[in-house]
C-alpha cells in the first residue's frame, strides 16, 4: 500500500498560485509544489546537487519523521522522487547539508535531542539507497562545513567533546579531529565566511566562542550581552579586523520603540571581545510574532514566525522585504534558502513543500 501511495504521488502536480501571491509583488513567485506522501509529519527541507546519469542536478531533499526523500527536477514545475531512506526506530530531527559535497546528505536523528548522525547516499550503480552511522550519543549541535567537513558537539559540561570529521568518497568519516571544548555547553555552530580555519559556536551562557579549526585551539570567548536570551549565530564574516555576526532572537520581546526584533547584526572586536549592536531586523508595523525557525544566506534572512507567517529581510537594506502568510490555513513550519539557486523552500507540517523564486 505504501509503495502504491508513493508511486501515485511521486510526480507533483503543476503548482497553483496561492491566493496570497498578491501580497508579495515582485518578491516571491511560486515556482512549484512538492507533496510528500509519507503521511508522517514533515520536519525539514534542503536543496543540493546530486549527480544523476553523469549530470549534476539541483535536487531537493525532504525529511519527514521516518523518511528522507531525494527529488530530481523533471522541468521547472515538476519533481520526481528518486530515492527514499527509511528509518524505523529513531525519527529524523533535521537535515544537515554538507557544502562542497555531491551525492551525500547527512541527517540528525533523535527525539528531543540528537542521538545519531547518519550520512545518506546511494550505491555506486545508483540503484540502492545506503546509510552510514557517523556518530551516536548525546549530541547537542551539528553543522556541515565547507571542505567536506562536519562539526558536532556532544556530552555534557564536564565531558563535552567538539569533533570535526572529514568525509571520504564513500560517505564514511575519513579523519576525526577534536577541538578544545569551552567550559559551557555549545548549542550551535557557524562558519566565518571566507575564513576556512575559523569556526564560531554559541553557548548556553550567551557567549560566542571562536576556534582555530587547523590547530583545534579555543581562541576566545565573547559575551554578547543578556538583552536577548538564547540568541543563535546564523551568519558571520570578518571585515576590517572586526567580526560581523547575524543573530536570531527567539526570545525577543516586542517593544513599543523597536517593534519585534527577529534578527540582529552585531559587530565584535575579537581582540578585545567588546561588541556593539549595528542593526535590528524587526517586523513591519502591524505584524506580530517571534522567531520560530529560519535561515540566512548571503544577505537575505528568512524566518518562520510564531504567527505562522514567513518574513524575509534584506540584511543590507535593513528592512523586511516580503511576507508570506499561511496558505490554506496551514501555518508554515520551516523555511530554507536553496543551496543551488535563489529559491526559497517553505514547508508545512502536513508535508507540503512550496518552492518560491525570490
Amino acid at each position: 500500500q505504501s509503495t502504491e501511495q508513493e508511486q501515485s504521488a511521486s510526480l507533483t502536480e503543476v503548482a497553483e498560485l496561492p491566493a496570497c501571491q498578491s501580497s508579495n509583488p515582485g518578491h516571491l513567485q511560486l515556482v512549484s509544489k512538492l507533496k510528500n506522501p509519507s503521511g508522517s509529519c514533515s520536519v525539514d527541507v534542503s536543496a543540493m546537487w546530486w549527480e544523476i546519469a553523469g549530470f549534476k542536478e539541483p535536487c531537493i531533499i525532504t525529511a519527514c519523521e521516518y523518511v528522507v526523500s531525494l527529488w530530481k527536477p523533471l522541468n521547472t514545475l515538476q519533481w520526481e522522487k528518486l530515492y527514499s531512506w527509511h528509518f524505523t526506530e529513531v525519527p529524523v530531527l533535521q537535515i544537515v547539508p554538507v557544502p562542497d559535497v555531491c551525492n551525500l546528505v547527512c541527517v540528525a536523528l533523535g527525539n528531543l535531542e540528537i542521538r545519531e548522525i547518519r550520512s545518506l547516499l546511494c550505491s555506486s550503480d545508483g540503484k540502492r539507497e545506503k546509510q552510514v552511522l557517523l556518530s551516536s550519543g548525546n549530541i547537542k549541535a551539528v553543522l556541515g562545513l565547507t571542505g567536506r567537513r562536519l562539526v558536532s558537539s556532544s556530552g555534557t559540561l564536564c565531558d563535552q567533546q567538539v569533533e570535526i570529521m572529514t568525509f571520504a568518497e564513500d560517505g564514511r568519516s575519513k579523519e576525526k579531529q577534536f577541538l578544545m571544548p569551552p567550559e559551557e555547553t555549545v548549542l550551535t555552530f557557524a562558519e566565518v565566511q571566507g575564513m576556512q580555519e575559523a569556526l564560531l559556536g554559541t553557548t548556553i551562557m550567551n557567549n560566542i566562542v571562536i576556534w582555530n579549526l587547523k590547530t583545534g585551539q579555543l581562541l576566545k570567548k565573547m559575551h554578547i550581552g543578556d538583552r536577548y536570551q538564547a540568541s543563535v549565530c546564523r551568519k558571520a564574516y570578518s571585515e576590517m579586523g572586526l567580526l560581523f555576526v547575524v543573530l536570531s532572537h527567539p526570545c525577543a520581546k516586542e517593544s513599543e520603540l523597536l517593534g519585534s526584533p527577529v534578527f540582529q547584526l552585531i559587530v565584535i572586536n575579537p581582540k578585545t571581545t567588546l561588541s556593539v549592536g549595528v542593526m535590528l531586523y524587526c517586523l513591519p508595523q502591524g505584524q506580530a510574532g517571534r522567531f520560530l525557525e529560519g535561515d540566512v544566506k548571503d544577505h537575505f534572512a528568512a524566518a518562520v514566525l510564531t504567527s505562522g507567517t514567513i518574513a524575509i529581510w534584506d540584511l543590507l537594506l535593513g528592512h523586511c522585504t516580503a511576507l508570506l502568510p499561511p496558505i490554506s490555513d496551514q501555518h508554515w513550519s520551516f523555511v530554507k534558502w536553496s543551496g543551488t539557486d535563489s529559491h526559497l523552500l517553505a514547508g508545512q507540517k502536513d508535508g507540503n513543500i512550496f518552492v518560491y523564486r525570490y
Binding site: 582555530n212 585551539q217 579586523g241 572586536n269 575579537p270 567588546l274 556593539v276
Partner: peptide, 23 residues
C-alpha cells in the same frame, strides 16, 4: 557604531589570537 566602543582593532586578529591562545 563608534569604533572607540570596540577598543583597538587588528586586521590579523585570527593569527594573533592563535599565537596567544593555549595550544
Amino acid at each position: 557604531c563608534n569604533q572607540a566602543d570596540l577598543g583597538p582593532i587588528s586586521l590579523n586578529w585570527f593569527e594573533e589570537l592563535s599565537l596567544e591562545a593555549p595550544p
